[in-house]
């Protein structure tokens, strides 16, 4: 797959990455090359093979729904960029009504 600048712009948005026009020009051929490279795997017939998600074929373990962790809100919020009254602060998402 050869990606266009518009494709890369869209992927960057999906991945929440900011990309200048220069960045797009830098990454577009690199990402296309990587995709061409990985497409080698289409050479082989895998119609008879089950996909492998876990190398040991184990599924995720479940556990009883019991509280095991103590509340460490203060310790966790000490390393946050911005908090107030126990809440994480981010720029306003919903505008005030006019």
């Amino acid at each position: 797959m050869t990606l266009t600048a518009a494709d890369v712009k869209k992927i960057a948005h999906l991945a929440r990455l900011n990309m200048s026009e220069d960045d797009i020009a830098f990454y577009t051929p690199q990402l296309s090359n990587i995709l061409h490279f990985v497409e080698q795997m289409n050479q082989c017939d895998t119609s008879h093979i089950d996909p492998v998600a876990n190398p040991l074929d184990l599924s995720q373990r479940t556990r009883p729904d019991k509280v095991t962790e103590p509340n460490q809100r203060e310790a966790f919020q000490k390393i946050a960029p911005e908090v107030q009254a126990g809440l994480y602060l981010v720029p306003k998402v919903i505008e005030d009504e006019a």
Binding site: V38, M41, N42, C44, T46, I49, D50, P51, V52, A53
Partner: peptide, 16 residues
């Protein structure tokens, strides 16, 4: 399907 699923199947081949 073209990428992730195919890669997981190739993973199966390699394990085999």
């Amino acid at each position: 399907d073209a990428y992730y699923l195919q890669a997981q199947k190739v993973r199966g081949l390699i394990r085999q």
